[in-house]
Design a protein around this nucleic acid. Structure first.
Length: 262
DNA sequence: AGGACGCCCTGTTCGC
DNA sequence: TGCGAACAGGGCGTCC
């Protein structure tokens, strides 16, 4: 489920594979992943160009073109990029293929079609148009506190609101709240300075560590909630029972003994 | 404004 | 055994 750490790793992957190669052609297998553009327009824009660099904001990946402007990717729930030789079969559910003149290609794979790809001229303008808040990793403690303060509701849906903070999804929000020992249904209105401090500290720690572990759930420490996302599993901290609830319409895992504020 | 709910989409899993 | 319902969830929209 591509959230900030996953997209950060996709960025590293594209940096390591797909930069500085002339684009020969673009194939769109499914036009419904394209947002505000067409296969023809995409082909015209990318043909003869190359990728120069990447940037990330929240869950969005921006691939900079050598003549300015960006190919923007959002991965929905099941998306990922895949680079390989063009004579290899692209992965199943490849929705877009960028073919390079050197005989390799970058595939945009998205099984459930919840992601999308678009073109943008400017990152700041794109972020503004999409109504995205600041990237989660750019916030210091005071920034985070100021972003949350106007909201009165439950902390989890607010943290997942991309207009408040960009980059947090269902899984890592649960993880962050577990580390901060805050219940997902806790009311932001009741947060004191200590709560905000713990939340910020947990957010930075979890995101940075997840990126370091290549956003691979297999590599996450056993002391995390992530390997225990199942009703009735044991809390790695207190051995209490992990509970599954629905918060903001999303499946949520919590240790009721460790996490307070319900 | 917050929050419940529904929708999109597809593959897997579960229950009858 | 087999079929359909439920579920997974990022993001959006609607309604109260």
């Amino acid at each position: 489920m591509p959230e900030l750490p996953d997209v950060a790793c996709f960025r590293q992957y594209i940096d390591a594979t797909a930069l500085h190669q002339e684009i020969a052609a673009v194939h769109a297998g499914r036009t419904d992943v394209l947002d505000g553009t067409t296969p023809q327009a995409l082909g015209r824009r990318l043909d003869g160009r190359s990728f120069r660099a990447t940037r990330r904001h929240g869950k969005y990946l921006f691939v900079a073109l050598d003549d300015g402007g960006y190919l923007v990717m959002h991965f929905g729930m099941t998306g990922y990029p895949a680079y390989a030789r063009s004579d290899h079969d692209p992965p199943e559910h490849t929705r877009l293929r960028v073919e390079f003149r050197n005989g390799h290609r970058l595939a945009y794979v998205c099984q459930r079609l919840l992601g999308h790809v678009t073109l943008a001229a400017d990152i700041d303008a794109f972020v503004q148009e999409q109504g995205l808040g600041p990237d989660a990793l750019s916030l210091d403690e005071a920034d985070l506190s100021n972003r949350l303060r106007p909201h009165r509701g439950m902390v989890k849906p607010v943290l997942m609101d991309q207009s408040v903070v960009a980059g947090l999804g269902n899984v890592y929000t649960d993880e962050i709240l577990f580390h901060a020992r805050i219940h997902p249904r806790a009311r932001i209105a009741g947060f004191d300075a200590g709560t905000c401090h713990a939340l910020h500290r947990a957010m930075c720690h979890v995101l940075q560590r997840a990126i370091r572990d290549r956003a691979d759930p297999q590599r996450m420490p056993a002391s995390w909630l992530l390997p225990h996302r199942e009703e009735g599993d044991r809390c790695p901290r207190c051995d209490g029972g992990i509970r599954q609830l629905r918060v903001g319409g999303r499946s949520t895992y919590v240790c009721p003994r460790c996490q307070s504020g319900d």
